[in-house]
Design a protein around this nucleic acid. Structure first.
Length: 290
DNA sequence: CTGGATGCCTGGGAGC
DNA sequence: TGCTCCCAGGCATCCA
């Protein structure tokens, strides 16, 4: 399940394939996964008559940026340069096929971009929680990303504290809220709280400054280590980078997916509960309120 | 306004 | 073995 480290791994592995390449053709196999943001900021589904240019046909790819779990493919910085936002959702994959290679798993492939290098960029998403959004220009991207919280990879206590003070929710719920902090999902929320020694049920607004400091540090650390490991690939096998390679941070998980197993720190059994309908795993011995 | 619940969607695993 | 059921979860949307 792509969270920030997986999305960043996709971005880094995609970059050499896309940089300065032009898009020669676009094939949309399932329009329902593609939305279009109008210059006025309204959103609609891609229509059958919409030109391929919305999905960057004939454009030259310039850069790939990331905020939280969202990727943006930029075609330049001028006010007329289109942008494509890709959200991987639960099971989304964005990968590159070398020239002449056949599509290894054609089911659930929704969009294919042919590049002037002969390579193809593929968006595949079995569960369809992800999608592609065509934006008219960089300003529309800025507007879209304005609603996201700061990127979790570089979060510090000074940014995090005022955002937590505002909400009485459980800290676990607050961490999953992309408007509070962008990039953390269920795996890295649990891993971060474990590292910081904070109970997932603790009220966000009740965390004392030292706890917020530990938490910000834990989030940055765990995300950076996960990026370095190429992300987490689970047994469902959906997460791979742009070259089709899985990550290996899952072997370093301390709590996620380890309900009932002994804590790697204190040896006590890990427990799980539902918070905001998300399975939450924690160590009663190592994690305390505040 | 806040925050909880729900639905979307498929594949994989458990249980029978 | 094959069938059914349940679960995974990001995010939009609805509701109290």
């Amino acid at each position: 399940m792509p969270e920030l480290p997986e999305v960043e791994s996709v971005r880094l592995s995609l970059l050499p394939h896309l940089r300065d390449r032009a898009v020669s053709a676009v094939e949309v196999r399932r329009r329902s996964v593609v939305s279009v943001t109008t210059p006025r900021g309204a959103n609609r589904r891609l229509g059958p008559r919409d030109p391929d240019a919305l999905l960057l046909r004939a454009a030259r790819l310039h850069a790939i940026e990331r905020r939280g779990k969202q990727l943006a493919i930029l075609t330049g910085h001028s006010a007329a340069d289109r942008v494509l936002v890709v959200q991987l959702g639960m099971s989304g994959q964005l990968f590159c096929l070398p020239p002449g290679a056949h599509l290894p798993n054609p089911t659930h492939v929704h969009v294919v971009w042919r590049l002037d290098s002969g390579a193809r960029l593929v968006f595949r998403d079995p569960r369809r929680f992800g999608g592609v959004c065509a934006l008219p220009n960089p300003a529309a991207l800025a507007a879209r990303w304005e609603s996201l919280g700061p990127d979790a990879l570089t979060i510090d206590a000074a940014d995090l504290q005022p955002r937590l003070v505002r909400t009485k929710r459980a800290i676990k719920s607050a961490l999953l809220d992309q408007q509070v902090l962008a990039g953390v999902g269920n795996i890295y929320a649990d891993e971060s709280l474990f590292r910081a020694g904070i109970l997932p049920t603790a009220r966000a607004s009740a965390l004392k400054p030292p706890a917020v400091e530990r938490l910000a540090h834990a989030i940055r650390d765990v995300l950076a280590q996960a990026v370095a490991a190429g992300g987490s690939s689970l047994s469902d096998g959906t997460y791979v980078d742009a070259n089709g390679n899985p990550g290996n941070f899952q072997i370093s998980h301390n709590v996620y997916g380890r309900t009932g197993l002994p804590c790697r720190a204190c040896g006590g059994p890990l427990r799980s509960m539902l918070i905001s309908n998300r399975t939450t795993v924690w160590c009663p011995g190592c994690q305390r309120g505040r």
